[in-house]
Simulated assay, not measured.
Amino acid sequence: MRHSERHRTEHIGWLRASVLGANDGLISTASLIVGVAASGTERSAVLVAGIAGMVAGAMSMAAGEYVSVSSQADTEAADLARERHELATMPEAELRELAGIYEARGLTPELAMRVAEQLTAHDALGAHARDELGLTEITAARPLQAALASAVAFAVGATLPVVVAAVAPDAWVSRIVTASALVLLSVLGAVAAQVGGAPVLTGAARVTFWGAIAMGSSALVGRLFGTQIG
């Protein structure tokens, strides 16, 4: 029977984009709402600012992630094309190179060559992609997946402060948005740490700390400039 294992590295791609997107959506939108509300602006303007920030942020996250991961995908494709060319034009040199990699990992020269020969016969490009370039199916760049995950996660994270701002009493908008955002940030930090195998309390504390700094700074700016403009 084949032994099946699940590794945390399987989650790296989508987890990174989703967690970063949700954190950014929550922190940036909550900070925007808190800052605008602290300036004394009417609720309608606060909601417009929050919704506009949510849409603009989601599109920005998607575009940024797509461009970044597309660059990675282009690099991977160029490396694979070069390997494909080298395998076609100098197969013996590539075989020795592959054997040298296995020998450096602890195999005897004879065994390393046999392994290289068998893997080359089975899937030469796959062997070089994996063992020379470090490219696998799990870590392969997926621009559209990363962009979509970032946009959706940002929008999901930004939804909470917008909804809270819509239902909270006028005098308590800043306080309730801040408190609810900090609670959710701590949950997101804990979940990300748990899935990634990191200490849960540390993951929750650091994202909550920086979220509090962001919202506090926005509130200060809103009060200062709101007073001056008013």
Rank of each mutant, 00 (worst) to 15 (best):
P161M: 02
R114M: 14
F209P: 00
S18E: 03
A219C: 06
P199S: 05
E110Q: 14
L185I: 10
W14I: 13
L80F: 00
F154S: 01
D123K: 05
V36A: 07
R2Q: 11
T159C: 08
T29Q: 05
M113S: 11
A37D: 02
I12W: 10
G40A: 09
T29Y: 07
V173I: 15
A22F: 03
V162K: 03
V173P: 09
S4I: 15
A165W: 03
A58I: 01
A99M: 04
S4F: 15
L107P: 02
S68V: 08
G57S: 04
D131I: 08
A146H: 14
S68M: 07
A190E: 06
Q72D: 12
V191H: 04
E10T: 05
V162D: 00
L47T: 02
E86D: 15
A124P: 05
V164Q: 00
V67Q: 11
T9L: 14
M113K: 10
L188N: 06
H7W: 13
M61Y: 01
S218Q: 05
V34I: 12
V207P: 01
I138M: 12
S44N: 14
T89H: 15
S39G: 14
L148D: 09
A63H: 00
L182N: 01
I33R: 07
I229S: 05
L135E: 10
L160V: 12
E76W: 05
T120A: 12
E117V: 11
L111A: 15
G64N: 08
V34W: 01
A171I: 00
T202C: 06
M1H: 00
L224P: 07
R43P: 12
S70D: 10
S4Y: 15
L220H: 04
V19H: 04
L47Q: 04
E92Y: 06
H122I: 01
L98H: 09
E83C: 05
E97L: 13
R84S: 14
M1S: 09
V187M: 07
S18V: 12
A38G: 11
V167M: 12
S71Q: 10
G222W: 00
R82K: 13
A38M: 13
S28F: 02
